[in-house]
Amino acid sequence: MRILSAGDEFVGNDLLRAAVRAEVNGSADLDFRELSLPWPIEPFGPVAEVDEASGTEEQVIEALDGAEVAVTQMAPFTRKVFASAPGLKLVSVCRGGPVNVDLAAATEAGVAVTFAPGRNAAAAAEFAVGLLLAALRRISTSSAELLSGTWRGDYYAYANAGVELDGTTVGLVGYGAIGARVARVLVAFGARVLVADPYADRDAVAADGAELVDLDDLLRRSTAVSLHARLTAETRKLIDADKLALLPPGAVLVNSARGGLLDYAPLAPALHSGRLGAVALDVYDVEPPPADWPLRDAPNVIATPHLAGASKQTADRAARIVAAEVGRYARGEALANVANPDASAR
């Protein structure tokens, strides 16, 4: 079985190859072809009709070279790629959603596409809580000021002091694998947790110690809000100027999910006026943000370069998840996480 391993600088070909070999373990003879992609050293972007991809269609077509299976995180699998790879039967993508794959074209070509739900849930949940703590307690901003030579003793003044998680109401917008983990951590800190997600199970939310409410109610009641929804047509710019206006004065907003969930335009004015107390961001509407980005000059901004899922365990777990799908395919078993169930991998 010929396999294209299209790794990158995070989930590398060595991880992918070793995981596939361990999983297949003699159930098929493996012939690997490799393609090395430059992400995350070079940012991802749209390639033809797919999003968040690294590399070119031409590179993938050349590297496939008769492959039956492809494992990747970032390679673009477009209509042109599928048309050029008639022997391809399975594309296993080691990320939470295969946005770098044209699912309609894959289905038409009879190529099953799998993905890796939950691969970065632990890393992303921990990072979101870290951003929340940093924003509520001025950890990042006070560190930057101290290193630049300014001792902000006034942060200990009552008017400027931070807020503890213990006893604070935190709203979570979205309650998938990451949002649920964040809720359980926050409850352990002693926070009151509200959840807004029209698809969440009320009993499951309650079992985690949180309360399911509608979005407007969550925004009105929350001292801090963290976004964890998937980006869809329904959720794009879910939090806009009107929604931000519902927050209590001085509230903290965290987005480590998807840049498209948030309208970034009203953030800088809200920070300058004090309407927002702080924002902590790991994702953006444009990545990387441009040089004239208004938030560069706004107060109380924490900004990290899309790092929430960047843990060694995430990369290892992602490789194992895609390898498990290759193993199922090699043994003729049903695939576990298929994004296009109308396609057949056989």
Rank of each mutant, 00 (worst) to 15 (best):
F189L: 06
A128Q: 11
D31K: 10
E164V: 12
V187G: 08
E287L: 14
P248Y: 00
V185W: 13
L15Q: 05
V279M: 06
V213D: 08
R331K: 10
V301Q: 04
R2A: 07
K243V: 01
A123F: 01
A323M: 07
E52C: 12
G277F: 00
V20Q: 07
V283P: 10
C94K: 00
E42I: 08
A177C: 08
S36L: 14
A104M: 07
R328E: 12
L267E: 02
S273L: 07
D342Y: 00
A109Y: 01
V322W: 04
D285M: 03
V213T: 10
D14I: 07
G167I: 07
E52W: 13
D297M: 10
L267C: 02
V185K: 14
S27E: 15
S226M: 11
L246H: 03
A75Y: 00
V173G: 03
D297T: 14
T232V: 13
A343V: 05
A319G: 06
R2P: 09
I3H: 03
L335F: 00
G309D: 08
A206P: 03
G174F: 00
A191R: 02
Y155H: 15
L244D: 02
A144I: 11
D263C: 08
V47K: 10
R119W: 02
P98A: 12
V187N: 06
V69G: 09
Y264F: 15
P248N: 08
D201L: 11
A67Y: 04
P248M: 09
E49G: 13
P249C: 11
T223S: 15
T304R: 12
A22D: 12
R181Y: 11
A28H: 06
F77S: 03
K237G: 12
A67E: 09
A339W: 00
V187C: 06
A278D: 00
V170Q: 10
V195Q: 05
D8W: 02
L253C: 04
P43S: 11
Q59L: 12
Y158M: 15
Y155R: 15
V193N: 14
P290W: 03
L172G: 04
A318Q: 05
D316E: 14
L227G: 00
A116V: 09
T72G: 10
N100F: 02
G130Q: 01
D14E: 15
L244N: 01
G45H: 08
A324Q: 04
V326P: 13
G174H: 01
E287P: 08
A188L: 05
R181I: 06
S273Q: 09
R95V: 09
A112V: 05
V279A: 05
N337V: 07
R275H: 11
G153N: 11
T223Q: 15
V205M: 05
A134S: 14
E333K: 10
A229Q: 07
A318P: 04
V69Y: 03
V91G: 01
G174A: 07
K80E: 15
N255M: 06
L16M: 10
H306Q: 10
A310H: 14
A229T: 02
G149L: 09
L133S: 03
S344L: 13
D203F: 14
A200E: 07
L88P: 03
P38C: 13
Y199S: 14
G55L: 13
L4F: 00
A310S: 15
V225F: 02
A177I: 02
P299W: 00
R230W: 10
Y284H: 04
G45P: 01
S273T: 12
G174C: 04
I178K: 03
A188F: 03
